[in-house]
Design a protein around this nucleic acid. Structure first.
Lengths: 381, 381
DNA sequence: GGGATTAGTCCATAATCTGTACATAATCCT
DNA sequence: AGGATTATGTACAGATTATGGACTAATCCC
């Protein structure tokens, strides 16, 4: 739905605050004069807007710019990491996680609680998470940070503030409310991990982040924004059909990617990815074959994904990150052979640079993005 | 890229013109008072904006609203079809087409030129198209319409104003310029057909339009907007992998949907879809089997598409429209069986309501959408 | 040290929307 | 039939915000 409300003077100012803050955020510290140039606003207006942003604590004057050029040197205005921060949260199969990130995207705090959340009572887990939230926000406040919003990553599908279905947790239609007394959002783990990769990893603006966990999800980032589909269910790469009459999948389908390249298929009886990596390094035959099989299946599924989603590049994350050296070959061969004629070159295949906490970081980043996109609203300017 | 230019007084007014026009467009004729309510602007402001829109000829006062309620009756303001129009164009394998559509989405003019465009010189075809443009715009002007922009649908991939690759025409990297002396856009046939379906067909705002032609394309509409992917290449449904080691496809891959459900696979030696329909109606065995095979393949490919794109519903168009009675069964069975657990119900499968000229209509509609989204810019207000 | 150059601020002006008042036109009620 | 009621649309003063030129400030170059 396109915004359909009229613009008034206050929304004009709100918008211009966002434009100036966005310019500072996008291309680093700038003097007021440079910001005027960038935004098309006059120096006068920029000065007035920057003054409001300074009051709100989202930017600071970070010293004089001396470019060796002549003329009066300007004062650079940059994002301030000293007052405003956001909270990232994650519920996953075997842990809860939280992190506090300041406006400069500096991670100020991380907390993890190991716990087996499979088939547990949502109320218990949420209580435990609420606890973690209290702990982290208190600690953040002690560091002088004002936490102004939070987002939660979950391994399942989300609509609004309701967790619709998280098969690996055994949850269905769980409403997550009262977790924090702040602006709040929930989203799928893969989508938020994609955003984590965007802001804390490679910084590229267009890619498909493939999240290999127990299930396989994917988050498509186009122009720095996650594509969510109609109901927010897009990117279910794990159930793309690889072999139409292959083995049954728990989703009810047959021959889904998850059957061939999910954690269970790859690890088998092994307890952890690290053990698989160890075997691969030692040249263990069954391990190598499992990886190759998974790689081929990934290549097929990603071919379909490239044709449908047109990603800029493909980033392998989650358990695929440590396995990248063994997956890269079969996956990119498959992609190259199949995509052949259709596009100049297939999208580059790269490994995630963010590590296992991509999703929590992405959650915190999501709120930061919102602050920068609408500072007036979230900061009460 | 988020808009990064500051808002000034004139852009505030430009935006409010768009908001008012958008409200009229979205929910039919309204009085000034109702528009004020809808937009959150004051009656005064709305009056002033409407007066500008009246001057520009995009809206008219369409009579007094008498609701039986008491109080002074208002004057309804509605879109005007009398002055502003847009031009839709299409180059396809065996014809050129043009249509003129007014702001109320009334089709005022259609012209088609049959021609075999396969492997022909782009310059010739474009000259012929330019001719058609002159003819139609002249005729539109005689009807008192001012053509303010045009868009062109092509059976291939597009970047900017360059037709990158149209395999069935045998074209590569053709720059389409100077076709009209107006705001102009080119886009893929499937994307524009999807928009045609959106505005001239079912009016639903969320669906995947599947365009069965010689190739198979798809256009995803989410919230009334086409999803284009990173390079504008999204929606290549025809090359989604159905059988990983199936027969080779002209794209270089194997077992693509196109191999099983493209026009060639379905029609075989038959000259036209109508002949296939005739055989199907008479119970011809090979025809029925070909259809069933295509339906199954479509079901598999669409399962992957649903998981990745999350469409609101699926609309079958192009040659699939007349074949819908025979395709519906196998396709929706496949979808139902495979999507089972993952979502409440699979997306509804429906037939296109727009017919074969969906793409030209969508092209004209694209420019209408632009006028309504940015009236100030395109009308010089 | 003086001139040139660029940064940032001040203030009068312009553009646009808001809000109250008012003229207008219908229905409702007696 | 006539006045009360109610809602529409316009007029005008006032509020908000951005602009643009003048001015001060700070540095470089000669």
């Amino acid at each position: 739905m396109v915004a359909s409300r009229g613009v008034r003077h206050d929304s004009m100012r709100a918008r211009n605050l966002a434009v100036v803050l966005g310019a500072i955020h996008r291309s680093g510290p700038h003097t007021r004069a440079a910001l005027a140039e960038l935004t098309g606003l006059t120096k006068t207006t920029v000065s007035s807007l920057v003054s409001d942003l300074l009051d709100a604590g989202v930017v600071t004057e970070s010293g004089v710019v001396r470019g060796g050029e002549r003329g009066r040197p300007g004062v650079a205005v940059s994002l301030s990491g000293h007052r405003v921060a956001t909270l990232g949260l994650e519920i996953n199969i075997d842990y809860l996680a939280a992190c506090v990130v300041d406006l400069t995207r500096e991670v100020r705090l991380r907390r993890t609680r190991r716990a087996d959340n499979r088939n547990s009572d949502p109320a218990d887990i949420l209580a435990s998470l609420r606890d973690l939230v209290k702990e982290t926000t208190a600690e953040a406040e002690q560091a002088g940070l004002r936490v102004i919003g939070a987002a939660l990553a979950v391994p399942g599908t989300v609509e609004g503030e309701v967790l619709r279905s998280a098969p690996h947790l055994g949850w269905r239609d769980v409403r997550v409310a009262d977790l924090v007394d702040l602006p709040f959002a929930i989203d799928n783990e893969a989508n938020l991990a994609a955003l984590g990769e965007l802001w804390f990893g490679s910084q590229a603006a267009d890619f498909l982040y493939v999240s290999g966990e127990i299930g396989i999800g994917a988050g498509l980032v186009v122009g720095g924004t996650v594509f969510r589909g109609t109901f927010g269910l897009a990117g279910e790469l794990g159930h793309v059909v690889v072999v139409p009459d292959g083995p049954a999948c728990r989703c009810g389908g047959r021959g889904c990617l998850e059957v061939y390249a999910g954690q269970d298929a790859l690890l088998g009886a092994l307890p952890e990815v690290t053990s698989l990596v160890a075997r691969l390094e030692s040249g263990d035959r069954p391990a190598l074959e499992a990886c190759e099989r998974a790689g081929h299946a990934l290549g097929v599924a990603l071919t379909s994904a490239v044709h449908l989603l047109d990603p800029g590049r493909i980033v392998l994350g989650g358990i695929y990150a440590p396995l990248f050296p063994w997956l890269q070959g079969p996956v990119s061969e498959g992609l190259g052979a199949r995509l052949g004629q259709m596009r100049g070159t297939p999208p580059a295949l790269v490994v995630s640079e963010t590590g296992p906490d991509a999703a929590v970081l992405g959650a915190a980043g999501l709120i930061i993005q919102q602050v920068i996109a609408e500072p007036a609203q979230l900061l009460g300017l």
